[in-house]
Amino acid sequence: MENNVLIKTEKLVKIYPMGQYELVALNEIDLKIARGEFAGLVGPSGSGKTTLLNIIGSLDIPTRGSAMVLDKKIETLTHKQAALLRNKHIGFIFQTFNLLPVYTVFENVEFPLLLLELSSGDRKERVMDALEWVGLADRANSKPNQLSGGQCQRVAIARAIVKTPEIVLADEPTANLDAKNSHHILQTMEKLNKELGTTFLFSTHDEKVIRYLRRKISLYDGKIAKDEVQKPQPVVVETTSEED
């Protein structure tokens, strides 16, 4: 891998057909993300943040150009290869948490490990470690509807990191959370990035998130308007009870 570069896009274009017209969601994006980065795609709605994140996450393919993720060309992957890439190397965190409603917290976090066909003992150990990381080990048997929004997003983080992926892609992870919960979540992710070396790539227009980023990639109308390294300015918040 070129100088520890995990993600590399070259002249990446994504066009959506809209009846007689075409919507250019991404227009010739050139981007490199190195291992261990804590970066964010920033921009207003419709700027192409989620589209780019989806392509990097192999959930979608570019119309033109190239996207290399962990030395795999996304545009050439079959459905199975793309699923395998996501399963082994990429964790996702969604704005709406996307927890499986009928599963317990433990089962939700265990899900990616089941797909990896790990042994029961191994799974249990990893799930509990991940839940410890996000401070929810005591809620392992709860169902998502018994948790607050912040707790749900922490479960989603645990689910994303439980398989120790190289990359975690977080799409508007704080959009449904209040300020206090947002900071808790961001602090957790920052800690994971520092201690585990996991690369985080956010898509956000939330100022709270932007303050935590070490690299801010601004998108506008499907193009990179600005790519800047910045000094994080996290906000100190009380870390007491988190119940919403």
């Binding site: 959930l59 890439l85 399963n87 969604f94 996307n98 409603p101 990616p112 990896l116």
Partner: peptide, 14 residues
């Protein structure tokens, strides 16, 4: 959404 989440976590369509 559940299916999408499963696919995002690496479950194949099959």
């Amino acid at each position: 959404k559940e299916m999408g989440t499963m696919m995002a976590m690496g479950m194949t369509r099959g």
